[in-house]
Amino acid sequence: MVLEFTEAGIYCPAADIHIDPWRPVPRALITHGHSDHARPGHGAYLSTSGSAPVIRHRLGDIRLQTIEYGEERRIGGARISFHPAGHVPGSAQIRVEVGGEVWVVSGDYKTVDDGLSTPFEPVRCHTFISESTFGLPIYSWTPQDVLARELNTWWAETAASGRHAVLGVYALGKAQRILRLLDPSNGPILTHGAVEATTAVLRAQGLDLPETIQITPETDLKSLSGAMVLAPPSALGSAWMRRLGPVSTGFASGWMRLRGVRRRRAADRGFVVSDHADWDGLNSAIAATGAERVYVTHGYTAQFSRWLAEQGYQAGIVETEFGGESLDAEDSETEGATP
């Protein structure tokens, strides 16, 4: 096998290297900077140059080499290259070729262009290891232009009623993607410290993001009326919120597609947006790889692999420690991104 599934994670024997391992290993290839994929404790790391600043920011002083999209590297008996996954800035799928057989590890991905990350590129392969976070046909995302309109309308209405709009977003990726959709003419954009830290890292690597003001104990919130406040989901409903005064709350997440989740989170608004592929995205991405065999990792693995098997793929499930089921998947992405 080109890749094997071990206790420590996905392993390439020909290169003696792991991909996104969850136990400490000597050498790790990292698809992207979310905490369930880039973990501390490995001997050496290899990631794209676009992912590297966030990984360094989160994991501190590690041995990290970088690689560009499409650049090929020989490691042992394997040819390794990284390709855009469209998930968050710098995120990659990892292509591994051994003796002419090609496997691709998707990491997390989405097929729509978010205007921020390098868009997803299908990579032809024999075996594709795909996430299936949203691998059920109930998941379908709001088009980006509609989403931008919904967000800005909500912001404008909330500002007009003399309140701040507080949006729960994941600190890495989602927050910056939303930043790009916001219309700054509505008012100031404020950030929670966790969001600001990650945003600063991405800004420093050259991404064009609108101006934000981090909320500190000194921030004069009274003078900043009608603001959009971006905070990690866990901050909503916490004591941190109290100082903001009257607010309207919202969450931006793929789970907001479900009315039950929207209601349980008890926010005023839910915006259906995810950095993972929706049902059509997963299916079209898999079809575009031309793969005969597909392994699915996190999410609705049982249902999605059965579906793929019925579509004629050789499908299997790989137990990983990426994300988790339901809300935990995206929740876990905040933890590491919060310094």
């Binding site: 046909p137 109930i138 479900l258 609705y300 059965r306």
Partner: peptide, 24 residues
């Protein structure tokens, strides 16, 4: 365009038949 079993697999996730239909 999905098999019935897949629809049935969606239902417990959504928790509401009307919504499951609307979503698929």
């Amino acid at each position: 365009g999905i098999p019935l079993w897949l629809f049935e697999a969606c239902y417990p996730v959504v928790g509401d038949l009307s919504e499951t239909i609307a979503l698929v």
